[in-house]
């Protein structure tokens, strides 16, 4: 039985700016952990450290170095000179034989309802569609961990709901460890199994909780959820967010 992932005494600063000072966190395996916090609280920096884009000054990351990652960025980050299909193929090239790649691409594009758009170039797609491609790419890639950095920012309410739905469908079939970062309380409560609330810099954990409600029973009317929402709002209010 593998144990949870842990971050112990993480330190990171950019020149004078202390982003993390002895930050410690537990990330449960095969669950969705949501990190909630104001913008500029070091969420993206944390993700970058976890997947190796940036280096921490000190601290123990136990054990992220052996993991492979999929990443859904705030912007879709698709290659504009490749079609939707080719964009998925780009990340799968080193992982699967061509025939297997083809099947995988078909399957995941189908799951995000983009089968008909597989030969389109990204510039012809709407923001929501691009983000769906980005999510399909993340799931099609055989990673241990899925990192999502405010993936629904800038999408309208309806599109956002639809994409969250798609994401949860995919995740329920393939339960990877997910770290999901957002500043939106409602978004967080619809998705998270573990919630971690960050303070402003240097980031501390203000609040931690687990949610054991199945995803399709969740809405803001739910008693437990509205209670947590109220609590988090209170914390944010007290810390001046």
């Amino acid at each position: 039985m593998k144990s949870d992932l842990s971050i112990i005494d993480l330190n990171k600063s950019f020149k004078e700016l202390k982003v993390f000072q002895n930050l410690s966190l537990q990330i449960p395996l095969n669950k969705i952990t949501c990190i909630l916090g104001p913008s500029g609280c070091g969420k993206t920096t944390l993700l970058n450290i976890l997947c190796g884009i940036e280096k921490a000054d000190s601290g123990i990351l136990n054990d992220f170095s052996v993991l492979t990652f999929s990443y859904v960025f705030q912007d879709a980050r698709l290659l504009p000179w490749k079609t939707v299909k080719e964009n998925l193929d780009f990340v799968l090239k080193n992982k699967y034989a061509p025939s297997e790649r083809y099947g995988r691409i078909e399957k995941y594009l189908d799951m995000v309802d983009l089968q008909d758009f597989k030969d389109y170039y990204p510039n012809k797609l709407s923001g929501g569609m691009k983000q769906r491609v980005s999510i399909a790419r993340a799931f099609a890639f055989p990673s241990d961990m899925l990192i999502m950095d405010e993936p629904f920012k800038g999408l309208d309410v309806k599109t956002k709901k639809n994409i969250i739905q798609k994401f949860l469908e995919l995740w329920n079939i393939d339960k990877r460890t997910v770290i999901f970062v957002t500043h939106d309380i409602e978004e967080c409560l619809m998705i998270a199994e573990k919630i971690i609330v960050f303070s402003q810099l240097p980031a501390r954990v203000l609040y931690e909780d687990t949610l054991n409600i199945t995803h399709n029973e969740r809405d803001m009317e739910n008693e437990q959820i509205s209670k947590i929402a109220e609590h988090i709002n209170k914390i944010f209010f007290q810390t001046g967010y």
Partner: peptide
């Protein structure tokens, strides 16, 4: 640069970064 960052996270090798990001 964000595309190169994306490619790195997905473990794409240098040769493919050159061919599929740098050249285009």
């Amino acid at each position: 640069k964000s595309l190169i960052e994306m490619a790195r996270v997905y473990g794409i090798d240098r040769l493919h970064i050159l061919k599929d990001i740098f050249f285009p």
